[in-house]
Amino acid sequence: MSAQRLAEQFETLEKQDHAARLGMWMFLGSETLLFGALFAVYAYYRGMYPSEFVQALHHNSVALGTTNTVVLITSSFTVALGVHFVREGKTRLTAALFALSTLFGGVFLVVKGIEYAHHIHENALPGGMYSFVEQPPAGVVLGITLYWFMTALHGLHVIAGMIMLAAVAVLCLKGRYGTHRFVAVENVGLYWHLVDVVWIFLWPLFYLTD
């Protein structure tokens, strides 16, 4: 089984697994810089418009935002547990935990959707579509635009992560992963943790702005 898994360019399975992990970490680093650019935009405009920028984000619901933070952290925890158990060969448990995490991701998206619906109702929309207040002072629209763009981009990552988690859960049940092969499971887990980490920063920046 494991001999088939070894690609010809590698000498040992250990090296091959190390390569897969390192590649994933590098991909995640690259992905983080994608958000890094937006964090720079955020910091730049918040520096330019300290009060107006914050004022624009003020009507975000702290309760919903905090709920989502707890949901994502818990989903991260269940994914970490799942990765832990696949190493011990308890693949059914892993599949269950990953399915649960996918469910948490769904809950996150539903809550996010409720928030978005609220914003649309208030016309707190990005760019030229904004009309929450007449004649907004400079900086307000930028805050709302960034909020939409960054959370929507994060939402896309959540969706991508959910698809991968669900796929791994199904493959775990089919017996593809186990003690003999688990790096792919780990890497999907890593991706989900990245989604969590990005949210850990988005939450104070967009909700805890008092």
Binding site: H18, R21, L22, W25, M26, L28, G29, T32, L33, G36, A37, F39, A40, S76, F77, V79, A80, V83, E186, G189, L190, H193, D196, V197, I200
Partner: peptide, 29 residues
Amino acid sequence: VLFIFMHLVEQRFANRLIVILTFLFIALL
């Protein structure tokens, strides 16, 4: 999250280096 959930404590230095560089370049930017 990085060290426990993502198992960075038990991995090679190369992986940690990537994390360090990521943080460094975001801070720089």
